[in-house]
Design a binder for these strands. Structure first.
Length: 214
DNA sequence: TTATAGATTGCCT
DNA sequence: GGCAATCTATAAT
């Protein structure tokens, strides 16, 4: 097993109280956890290496800034649930709700390091499945970016919005005891409002983050 | 390696 | 009607 390999024998769902906190704290501590998708018996999973915190109604960049709507209502519910939205006519993005009901903080998943079901990820992404040794440059195409990782895991709004991520189901966040290394904090990407707030968290030196490696 | 434009859907004003 | 928490192809350096 490599140093970032997934230890399924130790994996436990991250409990709801973990998410019932400030999104910045949740974001930092989600690094190193595993996002796991089950397609029947097949496991497709990636280690969380990059996330962003969104701070609820007080955060101009957050979808919750406009108050509760049909689209964002999961964010105003209890912590530990999936908020999936569709963006730019092409992509889905996955968040997990934080804070108690009424407070709309959340964490956006931006990049995963593939750890299980890698050939399924290539298929889901519409990429050729490599034969023989898989190069890191090929692996990076699978889930380095919020739209890429949802496509690799088959996450859609219709299927997954509102799903409880703290229960064993077909979409769960797991802790396998992995110890994350140094964390780097930068401004969030792809936004125009509150663009200078440093709320993006990534693992230092990890090859699978989106954008330039740090 | 960096820069730019185009795709394409649905939420919100 | 405007525009978005993105990705990809293509072009130029």
């Amino acid at each position: 097993m490599g140093d970032s390999g997934f230890d399924i024998t130790r994996a436990r769902p991250v409990p709801r109280r973990f998410y019932d906190r400030d999104p910045r704290r949740v974001a930092r501590e989600l690094l190193g956890k595993v996002l796991a998708r089950k397609h029947g018996r097949q496991l497709v999973a990636g280690r969380i290496v990059e996330v962003e915190a969104y701070m609820g109604v007080s955060d101009p960049a957050a979808h919750s800034a406009v108050g509760p709507t049909a689209r964002n209502m999961v964010l105003f519910g209890p912590p530990g649930y999936a908020y999936v939205y569709f963006i730019y006519g092409n992509h889905y993005c996955l968040n997990v709700s934080c804070m108690p009901p009424g407070d709309a903080g959340c964490v956006l998943f931006r990049a995963l390091e593939p750890v299980a079901g890698i050939s399924k990820m290539f298929v889901a992404r519409g990429l050729p499945v490599p034969n023989g040794n898989v190069r890191t440059t090929e692996l990076r195409q699978l889930s380095s970016g919020p739209g890429r990782l949802t496509q690799a895991l088959g996450i859609t709004r219709a299927r997954d919005n509102g799903k409880d991520l703290t229960r064993f189901s077909d979409l769960t966040i797991l802790d396998d005891g992995f110890h994350a290394g140094r964390v780097v904090i930068t401004p969030r990407l792809g936004i125009t409002k509150a663009a200078d707030a440093k709320l993006r968290y990534l693992l230092a030196g990890n090859l699978f983050v989106s954008g330039p490696r740090i």
